[in-house]
Every structure is written in structure tokens, then in C-alpha cells.
Design a protein around this nucleic acid. Structure first.
Lengths: 178, 178
DNA sequence: CAAAACCAACCAACTAGACGGTATGTTAGC
DNA sequence: GCTAACATACCGTCTAGTTGGTTGGTTTTG
């Protein structure tokens, strides 16, 4: 039988947010999405908040992994800024796990965002220490995030050619900084 | 007597989102916030969706007004890009009406974002026609939005000096384009 | 080695309260 | 006396979480 682990539940929750909106991320909906009873779901996550927290943590880990992967692959051709730009664009193309978790968390309880804040601070430190022009690096990072969140929130169409054009542009500009 | 008009109700709704999160934007909470019974509230907005729509429209109008104001004041010292940058920063500093409405709308029903999409397209057309380097202009616009949404979602602290530094930087860069 | 004890993983049924919306007033001003 | 602007009471539904199981596999023990 199809084993149901925590990872699968998190995926199901993300699916619910994508399909029906963050407001309708209910335990019943998640349970139905992954073919589980509500009782079974609550066996894995004892409260809804625990589920949301797990969603956020999983997303953060996913983004970090992507960034690390790019940093390793690119060797010395790209610094930390390029890695971040790459990872955010990759997140946009593949899945939108982080954004969905983020929307759900903000809707439910803004206090859940603390871990994101912490990560934000880390990234900024990283860039500040290594770049010749930290403010400009941050500006490029925020531009990437602007695109990212525009896509996430649904204000921009997925196939828009602007994504590819701006990705190139951002990487060019970041190359002068790293 | 404290008259309660639609504008006051929208403000109250924004207040609820700020204080308790988008998920707890309920008709009861809004009614309580503006000292009205639920029945009274529903007299002004027949459904919750109508209220959300009004929140979004009010916010969009507010942003447009700010941009127009800056465009008029700045005369020819700033083009459309500078106006937009100014207006988004102004929104961040003064109140966060748009963001709050946006979060609530996304949480409730992503389809409510259509008017925002339309406005987005308009702004992009505007920049594309008038700037020497449209892609770079968009990049700066997205950087502003990245800051804006970072603030809105609560991942960045309000008083962070980075806002002021990047605002200056963005305006400098935009001056070469407009 | 087999019975007994245990345990994680699940489910169905339920509860208490929250929520959106309706139905039916009431009151103040034109 | 008609209408806009409220209020009160209520309804059906939805929701997070609880309770009390069952089942199948593993571990312990006589």
C-alpha cells in the first residue's frame, strides 16, 4: 500500500494551497488530498500549526539545498549572490513549495515567519561580507525576490518571457560583484 | 456621532489583518473593530468577497494616487519609473493598506487578484515604451517590489536602514533610464 | 518457539466553537 | 410613511481537535 510519510503530507498540503488557496488549507482537505483520515493526519502532526511549521522548514531546506548545489556545480564562476539567484529561479520553475507554505503561514499566523526572518538575515550577512558592493548585491537579490513573489502571488503569468530575460540580466550584473 | 462609512470599514478590515493575520479577517472581527453589528456591516458589503474586493480596489487607487502625485511634484526630474519607486516606498512608510488587502485576498481567493494583474501589465507597458532600457527598468521595479513584499510579509523589520539606502540607490539608477 | 505485550499507524464518530449569511426587526431623518 | 442604516437572533456548515477504537507487525518473555 502507498505508505504515507510526513513528506507526502507536506506535499499534499502544498497541493491544497495551490488548488484552492491558503484559506482553504484545512486538515480535512489535506487529509483527503493524501488519502488519509483526519485522525491519521493528526497522528503525524498533532496540530495544524505543527504542519505549517513543517511546511516552512521543508521549504527553507529545499531552497538551501538548491543554492548549495549551484554553488558546488558552478565552482568559482559564481559567488553566493549568483547561487541565490539561481536557486530562486529554480524554485520558480520546478515547484513553488516555499511560496505556498509562505502564503499559508502568513495567512494563519505571521509569527510562524520567524525562521524565514532568521534565514534572511543570514543571507544578507553572507552577501555583505563577500561582495564589493553589498547594497547593489542586495538590490539584485530583492529584484529576484520581487520576480519570485510576483510569480508566487499570481500577479505574473508563468510563461512570461521576462523571466528568462531578467534571469540573464541578473546573472550578468551579479558577475561583476561576486 | 462617529459615522461609519465604507471607507471606515475597509480601514477596520486592514487593522484586523495587521493585528491578527489574514486568516482571522472575519466579518465578526471587522464588525467589532469598527463598532458595528455584523448585520450592520453586511448592510454595507453584502458578502465577504465584496469587502475584499473593495479593499483591493481602494488600495490600488491609493497607490495610483501616490504615483501621480509624485509624477506631478517631481516635474520632469523623474520619469514613470521614479514615480513608481517613490509611490511604493511611500506606501511602505505610511500605511500598508495594499499589502494587507493583498494578503487577505490571496488567502481567501487568488482569483481576486485579477485587477492587480491588469495594473501590473499597464505599468509594464508604460515603462517599456518610455525607457531606454526597458528590461533594466523592470529589474529596478521588481527590486522595489521585492523590498515592498518583504516588508509586507513581515520578513523584514520596519526600521531597517536598508530601506533608505536602497531607495536612494534605486532612484539614482532610475535617473539614468527615465 | 509460541504466546503475550507492545506499539506505530491508522480510522470513524464525535464535540465545541467559529464562521458566513439570512430573517426580522427597530429607529432616525427626509 | 418611506428608506437607509443599523441591531438581534438564529441557522447550517465548516473546522480544529478529541476519543476510543482496530490492525498488523515487532519485541519480550515463559
Amino acid at each position: 500500500m502507498s505508505k504515507v510519510d510526513k513528506e507526502a503530507i507536506i506535499r499534499a498540503a502544498e497541493e491544497v494551497v495551490r488548488e484552492k488557496g491558503a484559506r482553504k488549507l484545512t486538515l480535512d482537505a489535506v487529509a483527503a488530498q493524501c488519502g488519509l483520515s483526519k485522525g491519521g493526519l493528526l497522528h503525524h502532526f498533532r496540530t495544524k500549526q505543527a504542519l505549517l511549521q513543517a511546511m516552512l522548514e521543508s521549504s527553507i531546506a529545499c531552497e538551501s539545498e538548491l543554492a548549495a548545489e549551484y554553488a558546488a556545480k558552478g565552482g568559482d564562476s559564481g559567488g553566493p549572490l549568483a547561487s541565490r539567484i539561481h536557486s530562486m529561479f529554480a524554485l520558480m520553475e520546478d515547484e513553488e513549495t516555499l511560496p505556498r507554505a509562505l502564503i499559508a503561514a502568513v495567512a494563519e499566523d505571521p509569527a510562524l515567519l520567524e525562521p524565514i526572518k532568521a534565514k534572511e538575515a543570514k543571507i544578507r550577512d553572507e552577501l555583505g561580507g563577500k561582495c564589493s558592493d553589498p547594497d547593489l548585491a542586495l538590490l539584485l537579490l530583492f529584484a529576484t525576490r520581487g520576480l519570485f513573489l510576483g510569480r508566487v502571488l499570481g500577479v505574473m503569468e508563468p510563461g512570461d518571457p521576462i523571466f528568462e530575460r531578467l534571469r540573464k540580466r541578473l546573472l550578468e550584473l551579479s558577475a561583476d560583484l561576486d
